[in-house]
Design a protein around this nucleic acid. Sequence first.
DNA 1: CTAGGGTGTTACCGGTCTGTAACTTCCAGA
DNA 2: TCTGGAAGTTACAGACCGGTAACACCCTAG
Lengths: 196, 196
Amino acid sequence: MTDGVVERSRPRDRILETARDMFHKHGIKGVGVDAITEAAGTNKMTLYRHFESKDELIVECLRANAAKAGAMWDAFEAEFPGDKLAQLHAWVRRAAAMLNADGRGCDMANAAAELTEPDHPARLVIKELKEAQRERLVALCRGAGIGQAELLADTLSLLFEGARVSVQTVGAEGPSTQFVRMAEGLIVSFRGAAAG
Amino acid sequence: MTDGVVERSRPRDRILETARDMFHKHGIKGVGVDAITEAAGTNKMTLYRHFESKDELIVECLRANAAKAGAMWDAFEAEFPGDKLAQLHAWVRRAAAMLNADGRGCDMANAAAELTEPDHPARLVIKELKEAQRERLVALCRGAGIGQAELLADTLSLLFEGARVSVQTVGAEGPSTQFVRMAEGLIVSFRGAAAG
DNA sequence: CTAGGGTGTTACCGGTCTGTAACTTCCAGA
DNA sequence: TCTGGAAGTTACAGACCGGTAACACCCTAG
């Protein structure tokens, strides 16, 4: 009931969406396939007809997350076409909004914390997404005319990543409240360094 | 065998130490009490004579981590008595060393990712330790004569936290390689702001 | 030497986990 | 209306989980 999301759509989509939601809320190892299928209004057999294992379901969920993240970046470009600096500021606002969304951190980071086997198929997806995110942030910084684009991008991404785990450990009233100020200050500082 | 640590000491200590090690490596939900006691060279009954539940064992492990972290801060004070700026630099070096220690992130953050129940006893320990760490970092920044001590401390702590999850997701060759440069740059920048 | 507490051993409980088999029901397209 | 595939249902396998009971052992303090 609390994890509902049982709109009428194809079972595979319902399972995927429900699993994403429940993994996010309760962690991957904290949710069994039975609970997922029940919340999705279907059953275990149907799940195993569409996904060959729970691990594959996990991977598919993470891929869906990656796709959603990709769409976010595209939305920035659509909203401020060509204006990379404006897109960078949009990213900061968007990141800050995520911090206040709920007390859970990044699904990718959480999955990496749980899936400790070094050759787990999910680790590849996680790494790919994180590297893609970094490249897009670097591209924004570079496009915004910032000299040390990689360094700023890495700094901003570590700050954001840190802020997300901070809300998960000490809550939304901790150091993460300063995220926007930090990020904006860094952007100003790096732009100043490029100009001066 | 890989998770050995079976020196001859009192069973309780062996269990605690082994559990800490295995929780760190494989995650909390990824390790059962049977595996812990076997690696500690003892048995499940002995575990339950010293800890009333797995949850209590978890809490005790996190407390041990907190104690070790506290000792680290005391070591800074012992090495550079009174010189808060030197202690701050020592913290940066120490933090960087932790990044290259192994691919696993902060035990507290990982535990927070796994233990999603909002009233889990471990969450209190996690929050307390993180807040204590923040206060000690703020004290160092303030003692070093930095004007916006809280802001610098929060920035450094988010950077470090982010770097730890970064090594866990993309590996040690990702953005975390720039951690020292970022941190030292920030310290210089904040000191300059105080002077000017 | 003896008593007693800490420890080890074995077996077990009820529950949950991922994953499968065999069968029934439903529904859309021809 | 017929048919074939997708979906639902029930039951189960085999493993593991946290936690407990009952009992044998050993080692040290008195």
